[in-house]
Design a protein around this nucleic acid. Structure first.
Lengths: 364, 364
DNA sequence: GAAAACCTGTTAAACGTTTCACAGTTAAAC
DNA sequence: GTTTAACTGTGAAACGTTTAACAGGTTTTC
């Protein structure tokens, strides 16, 4: 059915010029006289012509595509990342091919393989585990690659953009301790993932240092519903901790769901620090205190590094480590019980209780 | 830097066969003897060869790519859609190219244009307005196209997958009336968008029919933060309505944010029905009653139709209209004031007040 | 046992671009 | 007024595949 798409040749004939000229009009790599250019543009319009990327790419070897691989397209953190990368890529004239590994190492390899079939100019990948996929390790020499988020920055064979996960754990841990908490649970997704381990390490080390107690880490996976069940189950067999620090946005959701189901009040019965910062977190009566990842910056830095590489930079792999901040809202309650010793007056900013301070500390 | 990627020719030489044979091994379109096939596969592995899609596509004219265009990659509804489409596409051997129009008609045209440059086998598009972009209208003859969500099913030139927006409005409106509400506000995003208009029409008509009152529709745009401001502003100059029906997930967020900031209690001071169904909606003490769109089904139906078209089906454009359901949770309170007349006993399912019934109706 | 049919592999011609080398033509330089 | 340089346009050769047409060799068929 239907007529084939127009080609350079047809446009050239219609405009009465050579195909090289038409190509020049479209690629802009050589100047073309104004009237000729107009003739060409008119002809192209009439045939609703558009350059065939496959042919263009085959001949020029240049792709103007970047592949983006993430572990999960249902996780807002990754889609925010993609959203921002897409904007910047467009600005610089690149298209984006998206692939999801669904947290499966094998699928990851295979998705990466197809991605490479596009001969992309670059790859931005969030590996699903902290071991960089073999196929990427091999390609990294030829192909600009930026690894984001789930990477061990020091070990990486390519540029990396990560947050300071240890610090993130520390910030949350310190804040909780300053608010008088010491009976703290860490809602982790998966302890096999390096960044999560780091967050745990950070939180554990500071809490231990300041209070002598060691927070327990619970693994809730990366599905909110399942996580909620796991956490509910955990709650059944343990006394209620005074605070939970959720280590990912999914576990934040899992914890909140479980607590909501059991009608446990936040922050009166339990304090919460969440992870990531999304609109829904403040669209609640008790707005959520959370560790904010600078998604915009992560995306920007990742794109900038990739662009640099695609433009030919061959310097040593650079790790970029960005910093998180604590978004203080209402979900963390100051414990009134006497602090043990001087520990609560730790380092860092003052307990910054703007919102937290205001709320009545009554327990009902 | 670094060696070029291997080509068919190099693999052929190394395996001591012709390039046609290598091609056959990879495309599987002609059988190849086992020992030869093994030789080829070995050679390919050693050179880490992979078919060049550009060349393959140029020659064969077949792309095995579909373009997916959505208005906003930060909107979970669209990313869920993409996520599901990606899974199914992969299963059927297609890759996905994602583009976002950022709700901008002009950008939409241009993104669509680049998408077409890939010579995709098909397009799934969520237009940003209800007028189908010119470029698509022209292409629809050549190119399998499925229009999703923001379309007027009856007028479309291509297959469409939508929900019954009028019905969605009715369901929410009827439920609110049955719960005793008549002073209702509709939190719309943009009244220029057909589906939103339909939702408004549905809600207005049923509420008017059952109570004689006409709900007011407020336009809050498609950015949650801005929407929250607009709604807060609206709240300042109007008496508090007894219920709000938010017509999109973003306006749901906007309304909740505004209410949270003003410390207006849900459902004691105001009842809410949200739109879409996401984890965060039930991860709250007062879980949100909401109109649930069958995202899975929408994605599935869209993909199935597209696949059919890509396989050569040339029948008339089919509109698929899916149905929403009300997810009753705790954010809608039963009003105790005497119902005006018999109106509240309308049609449809009983006021189904499982969760809503339980909560104390005290106003504090 | 010859003809037909079937396998399996090869040769070579595209596909629609980009881009190099070149050819006119005009402008600048001396 | 000739030589150089600068500008614009064209011809034609790739790029790495797919695929029709064909060529042997083996098997089937009558």
């Amino acid at each position: 059915m239907a007529r084939r798409r127009a080609t350079l040749k047809e446009v050239a004939e219609r405009a009465g010029v050579s195909i090289a000229t038409v190509s020049n009009v479209f690629s802009g790599r050589k100047p073309v006289n104004d009237d000729l250019r107009e003739r060409v543009e008119k002809a192209a319009r009439e045939l609703s012509f558009q350059i065939d990327r496959a042919a263009s790419q085959l001949k020029s070897g240049k792709a103007r595509v970047v592949g983006v691989l993430v572990p999960d397209l249902d996780d807002t953190f990754f889609t925010s990342l993609i959203s921002r990368i897409e904007v910047m890529a467009l600005k610089d004239g690149y298209d984006v091919i998206v692939a999801s590994s669904r947290d499966d190492r094998q699928l990851e390899e295979s998705r990466l393989h197809t991605l490479l079939g596009w001969r992309p100019s670059g790859i931005i990948a969030v590996p699903c585990s902290d071991t960089v996929p073999d196929i990427l390790v091999r390609e990294v020499v030829h192909l600009p690659t930026v690894l984001v988020d789930r990477v061990i920055a020091q070990e990486a064979v390519a540029d990396t953009v990560t947050i300071d996960n240890f610090e993130a754990g520390e910030i949350a841990g310190r804040y909780l301790v300053e608010m008088g908490h010491s009976d703290i649970v860490l809602a982790a997704s998966d302890l096999d993932v390096a960044p999560i381990r780091e967050r745990v390490r950070g939180a554990v080390s500071i809490v231990q240092k300041l209070t002598g107690k060691e927070p327990e880490a619970v693994a809730l996976g990366s599905n909110a519903e399942r996580g909620a069940e796991l956490f509910a189950h955990w709650l059944e067999r343990h006394p209620l901790p005074s605070a939970v620090f959720a280590l990912t946005n999914v576990t934040t959701l899992a914890v909140l769901t479980a607590l909501a189901r059991q009608k446990i009040d936040i922050p009166d019965q339990i304090s919460i620090i969440g992870f990531d910062d999304y609109t829904w977190m403040s669209a609640r009566k008790t707005a959520l205190t959370a560790i904010r990842q600078p998604v915009d910056d992560i995306a920007r830095v990742a794109w900038e590094r990739l662009l640099l590489r695609m433009e030919g930079d061959v310097s040593e792999p650079t790790p970029s480590i960005l910093h998180t901040s604590l978004q203080v809202r209402d979900s963390t309650r100051r414990l009134v019980q006497p602090a043990d010793g001087e520990t609560a007056q730790g380092t860092g900013e003052p307990p910054a209780g703007n919102a937290a301070e205001e709320r009545p500390n009554s327990i009902h």
